[in-house]
Computed example of a mutant assay.
Amino acid sequence: MDGHGVVEPDQLAMLTTILEEHCQSHGIPADSLDRENLATRIMTLFTSGITRIDDLKQALSGNR
């Protein structure tokens, strides 16, 4: 992410992959509020400085 809060295309692809994988493994439907909330949580983690894929996945699993 640059200094202006813009997510680069490769970063967005990574965040989307994390969202998709987490939803699939936890049975979260594509059109659910849970998915929207998860997307918000992922972005919050990312903007707070957790930018590596493994660290984001760990944070989502509650091990951080």
Rank of each mutant, 00 (worst) to 15 (best):
M1E: 09
M1G: 10
M1N: 07
M1V: 14
G3L: 07
G3K: 03
G3V: 06
H4S: 04
H4K: 11
G5S: 00
G5D: 02
G5P: 01
G5R: 02
G5W: 01
G5F: 02
V6E: 15
V7P: 01
V7C: 02
E8Q: 05
E8M: 07
E8L: 04
P9C: 05
P9R: 02
P9A: 10
D10V: 13
D10W: 10
D10E: 14
D10Q: 14
Q11C: 03
Q11W: 03
Q11L: 07
Q11M: 01
Q11S: 02
L12N: 05
L12Q: 11
A13R: 15
A13D: 13
A13G: 06
A13K: 15
M14F: 01
M14Q: 01
M14D: 02
L15T: 07
T16I: 04
T16S: 11
T17I: 00
T17Q: 10
T17K: 11
I18H: 00
L19H: 03
L19K: 05
L19I: 04
E20Q: 09
E21K: 05
E21F: 00
E21D: 08
C23I: 05
C23T: 05
C23G: 03
C23Q: 06
Q24N: 05
Q24A: 10
S25I: 04
S25T: 12
H26Q: 08
H26T: 07
G27N: 03
G27W: 03
G27L: 06
G27I: 04
I28C: 01
P29V: 02
A30H: 12
S32W: 00
L33C: 01
D34F: 10
D34C: 08
R35A: 04
E36A: 01
E36C: 02
E36D: 09
N37L: 12
N37Q: 15
L38G: 00
L38N: 07
A39K: 14
T40H: 11
T40P: 04
T40I: 14
R41P: 02
I42C: 09
M43T: 09
M43G: 08
M43A: 15
T44S: 11
T44M: 14
T44I: 08
T44R: 15
T44Y: 11
T44F: 14
L45H: 09
L45S: 07
L45A: 10
F46A: 07
T47S: 14
S48F: 05
G49S: 05
G49E: 02
I50M: 08
I50F: 00
I50A: 08
I50W: 06
I50K: 13
I50S: 08
T51C: 09
T51N: 13
T51E: 12
R52N: 12
R52Q: 13
I53V: 12
I53C: 10
I53G: 04
I53K: 15
I53Q: 15
D54A: 13
D54L: 13
D54C: 14
D54E: 15
D55A: 15
D55L: 08
D55F: 05
L56K: 13
L56P: 09
L56R: 10
L56H: 10
Q58H: 09
Q58W: 02
Q58F: 10
Q58P: 06
A59M: 12
A59T: 13
A59V: 13
A59W: 14
A59R: 12
L60H: 07
L60C: 04
L60N: 00
L60M: 06
S61F: 12
G62V: 07
G62Q: 03
G62Y: 03
N63Q: 15
N63M: 09
N63L: 12
N63G: 08
R64D: 05
R64Q: 10
